[in-house]
């Protein structure tokens, strides 16, 4: 009786053979019907991308340009299709963003172009594509990755948006600071039913959840940094815009609360080792608005200090905060019209837009820095649960 001895890894060449008629089954099982949760938790990050690339390598090895083309088209169209269907699910979008990037990195790492081979092992160099130059397809994949990134940002924004005003402005964690409520102000009724239930802690927990999902999916660290920067921009912009529209948010004690909240966000960045991703800098307008609520606003010296401090705020924003500023106790007073005029005169020569509100829809341009993998393709096993028994390891 023949003994079914498993082949040794060194005997494999890191390719997966498939029949042309199985291509649809491949993208169906691997992309359209895959449940990201199970895959992300149990298997190596980027496994679908590696499997697709190993199939592509086999088509390249056969020198079958039609097979290469149709596999790439089916892959890209399937990813677009799943994102159309589940585009509002952060996990799905994050999963396909990281896999699309990994697929793109593989196309570079194994392209045979020296610039992308610097970190390859000799064995990895043997696995470079041998017949086709897929540079144009890399461009298409990069365009796809940009689309998925924008979808991820929208998805994240939809989840975060309802928490921001409540967690950053309304909810008070510093006990006894505000003391007396500003006189003559009604408590603003909430437009979102459960708005009042969100706290800064809800925001921090949500940020951690986004972060842990992306890490689990093996998202490139450089890409995570860009997502976090965008998250912080949205938090800062939405908070500042609401502050600029609400008198009850423009008091000394709110300034204190905002500064505390910002320090907690910074602490979160430090905890995740993300201090250098540019996220903190996006909060600068909000930080300055909070400081503006707290500094003295009386003398010419105060005016000078404010003008040099608030360089991330527009004149319209500075003047608005000063106009809205509302004392909450007898030790504070309203800002005089004369003082506001002094500020306006001092800032007259600033070249800037008359913009009051920040544009919360801005998305920073994304880049996908090349991130080669040390994983040996020949060592990759295909778990039975993926239902890809029709692929043969070569």
């Amino acid at each position: 009786r023949p003994v079914n001895l498993p082949r040794k890894e060194k005997d494999f060449q890191g390719m997966l053979e498939y029949k042309k008629e199985d291509e649809l089954k491949l993208v169906k099982n691997l992309i359209l019907e895959l449940k990201p949760r199970g895959v992300a938790v149990n298997f190596i990050p980027g496994l679908p991308a590696y499997i697709l690339f190993m199939c592509l390598r086999h088509a390249d090895y056969l020198n079958d340009d039609q097979k290469v083309r149709t596999l790439l088209t089916s892959t890209i169209n399937s990813i677009k299709k799943i994102l159309k269907k589940r585009g509002d699910d952060f996990e799905t979008v994050s999963f396909w963003l990281s896999n699309t990037c990994r697929f793109l990195h593989c196309l570079k790492q194994y392209s045979g172009e020296e610039a992308f081979m610097k970190h390859n092992t000799p064995r990895q160099n043997e696995h470079c594509l041998s017949n086709f130059d897929l540079a144009e397809y890399r461009q298409v994949l990069s365009d796809l990755a940009i689309q998925i990134y924008q979808q991820l940002i929208k998805c994240m924004e939809n989840i975060l948006q309802p928490m921001i005003v409540s967690g950053m402005l309304e909810h008070e964690t510093i006990q006894g600071v505000s003391g007396v409520k500003p006189t003559g102000l009604r408590k603003r009724t909430s437009s979102i039913a459960d708005e009042g239930t969100y706290t800064l802690d809800s925001i921090l927990r949500q940020l951690s959840s986004f972060h842990s999902i992306m890490c689990q999916h093996g998202t490139d660290p450089e890409l995570i940094k860009q997502v976090v920067k965008q998250q912080f921009y949205i938090i800062g912009a939405v908070t500042l815009n609401n502050l600029l529209l609400r008198k009850d948010m423009c008091s000394w004690s709110k300034g204190m609360q905002i500064r505390y909240n910002v320090s907690q966000l910074e602490e979160w960045l430090r905890d995740k080792n993300l201090m250098n991703c540019g996220a903190k800098e996006t909060l600068e307008p909000l930080i300055q608005a909070a400081q503006l609520l707290q500094v003295k606003k009386k003398t010419d010296e105060d005016a000078e200090a404010i003008c040099s401090m608030c360089n991330a705020l527009t004149t319209a924003q500075i003047v608005k905060v000063l106009n809205l500023y509302t004392p909450v106790n007898e030790f504070e007073e309203r800002v005089s019209i004369m003082f506001i005029r002094t500020i306006q005169t001092r800032l007259r020569d600033r070249k800037e837009s008359p913009q009051l509100l920040m544009d919360t829809k801005i998305i920073y341009p994304v880049t996908f820095p090349f991130n080669p993998s040390s994983l040996a393709l020949e060592s990759i096993h295909i778990p039975g649960s993926l239902n890809l028994g029709f692929l043969t390891r070569v």
């Binding site: 649809l24 993208v27 340009d65 290469v68 083309r69 149709t70 790439l72 088209t73 089916s74 890209i76 169209n77 399937s78 677009k80 299709k81 045979g112 020296e114 081979m117 160099n125 043997e126 470079c128 594509l129 041998s130 017949n131 086709f132 130059d133 897929l134 540079a135 144009e136 397809y137 461009q139 298409v140 365009d143 796809l144 689309q147």
Partner: peptide
């Protein structure tokens, strides 16, 4: 080591053009 033979550049359609080649057409039609 990269092979000495030059690779053949595969011309790619754009992302939008690719969508036209809907591989799922048959499956989706009633």
């Amino acid at each position: 080591r990269p092979p000495s033979r030059p690779r053949v550049l595969l011309k790619a359609p754009t992302l939008a053009e690719m969508e036209e080649m809907n591989i799922f057409e048959e499956e989706e039609s009633p």
